[in-house]
Write a protein that binds this DNA or RNA. Structure first.
Lengths: 224, 224
DNA sequence: ACCTGAACACCGTTCAAGT
DNA sequence: ACCTGAACACCGTTCAAGT
């Protein structure tokens, strides 16, 4: 008697390959084992095939990451309602915080966004909403356009940085080396550090995030 | 007759290994062939040894990247002179632009800084200078501390993003997909994009960078 | 303590050959 | 057109053994 090869996923019925299937498996592997394990070979193995087969659907690992980012943005409910004229600032901060939170859950993917600049429909919709919101706040068009760029950059970078630090903290036992170095700095040689020591590490992540977005928005709104 | 093994670098005299030698070779390989080629195996080969030998001096590839960042910051002349009270804003923008420019030259290393948060002495000196400068501008201590964090994040993210995009543009023939997507968007469905279309891609990199730092500083200075 | 050979357990991508 | 086996050209890290 011989047993047929059996899919380790479904226990038999081998689903047909497709771009969506590749992206789906990639998302699942990322959530289960992290982005580092999202390799062409691992995805192929999960789909009971060889890595070469995936190249029919994605051009390579970089393009796959892009598709995964767009998938992640589905967590942001769109279309967003446009804010009332007087609450545009709070609403904008809110959307940016939500975006950061979504990316924060997958910091290694957020890091790839820093260099990727997604161009999928969901990302476009987000940019569009931000521009309309700033327009409601009577921000001039140039300041709005340049400002949205900076706001998004800050959201992405913060998510990548904070998230990866949390992961590193989980793994390694030691504290953040920057915090240690600040605490150990000579107050005479580093008067700025001595002055701000207590505030450099104060506040909660979310509180600082809201402050950062609000502060940047204030700068943008008054830059006319 | 037998020929002795010959160093491919020096043609004979094999320099002793050291942490500095490892970092130096890593920096050279990065400048010549990019960060992707800075592998333990490649560095070992350049030093005429096996990869295992490097683990005496660096704990792994992550720590090596950290050391390389500190090396890169040597391009920022320190100590920086503290600005006059009335020119603190311009001086701060200047230092941040210089930092971004240095990182921009090695965008893939800048990208690793997003997650790394360097803690070397040069980075500490930079934070100290920024804090002192903001103090001269009479920025309250909490706003200064939180603000410096955001300013540095923006510098690093911008360097990584812009630099990597430039590299990608060199390699692939096609234009930035985001620019194409913006141009192709339906004005009725995306009124914000239609409104800001011309300004989203306007301006030069340096001009936008100065604007971003200045705008953020204004927000920070008025956030009291 | 420093250094090494060899191995372990992986990668992304290409390509000729099959269906 | 889609799929595959096999190969090519690599990775980081560990470890027992040497000096």
């Amino acid at each position: 008697v011989r047993t047929e090869p059996v899919s380790r996923r479904t226990g038999g019925a081998k689903a047909p390959l497709s771009r969506q299937a590749v992206v789906d498996v990639a998302m699942r592997v990322m959530r289960e084992d992290g982005l580092a394990k999202v390799t062409m070979r691992r995805i192929a193995a999960e789909l009971d095939t060889g890595p070469a087969s995936l190249y029919v659907y994605v051009s390579g690992v970089a393009e796959l990451h892009g598709a995964m980012v767009d998938e992640l943005l589905a967590g942001l409910p769109l279309p967003l309602p446009l804010p009332a004229r007087e609450s545009w600032r709070a609403a904008t901060v809110d959307v940016l915080v939500r975006l950061t939170t979504i990316l924060y859950a997958e910091p290694s993917l957020a890091l790839s966004v820093v260099s990727l600049r997604p161009s999928g429909p969901r990302y476009l919709a987000l940019i569009d909403w931000l521009l309309q919101s700033l327009r409601r706040g009577e921000v001039p068009v140039r300041e709005a356009a340049w400002g949205v760029d900076v706001l998004l950059q800050l959201a992405v970078a913060t998510a990548a940085e904070q998230g990866l630090r949390d992961q590193a903290g989980d793994a390694a036992g030691d504290e953040a080396p920057l915090a240690e170095a600040i605490a150990a700095a000579d107050p005479g040689a580093r008067p700025g550090l001595a002055w701000a020591r207590d505030e450099l590490l104060s506040g909660e992540g979310l509180q600082r995030l809201r402050w950062a977005f609000g502060t940047l928005l204030d700068g943008i709104a008054s830059a006319a």
